[in-house]
């Protein structure tokens, strides 16, 4: 959905749903995934419909993902870190982990 017009000094390795990728160091998780052509990060809680980052400034909560095992993290407010494991969410979060 987006392409980068300039490059950062360095990259980090992350995974999204198990797929490894290298992304620029200065990006948020949401920006990093958008730069890789990934926009659908979860499905909605009631209707199970695809959802993507919407506001990129921390107010809409559309970009919720699981980061390193912690559910419902705001991808747009979290900066990528080397080794970060990100996964998409399906519907509501579950109660048994990461609360």
């Amino acid at each position: 959905m987006f392409r980068r017009i300039d490059k950062a000094a360095d990259t980090v390795a992350i995974t999204f749903d198990g797929i490894p990728m290298r992304v620029d160091i200065e990006l948020t998780v949401a920006a990093a995934l958008l730069s890789q052509g990934i926009s659908t990060l979860r499905t909605s809680v009631v209707g199970d419909r695809p959802r993507a980052p919407y506001c990129l400034m921390g107010v809409c909560f559309e970009c919720l993902v699981t980061i390193d095992g912690v559910q419902n993290r705001q991808a747009c407010m979290t900066v990528v870190r080397d080794g970060m494991a990100i996964s998409s969410q399906s519907g509501a979060r579950s109660l048994d982990e990461g609360c």
Partner: peptide
Amino acid sequence: TLPGVMTIGAAQIALKSSGL
């Protein structure tokens, strides 16, 4: 709510902070 729709502010943030 469809992927592919964002706010203009979001698109501007992507451009300002990530060069997207």
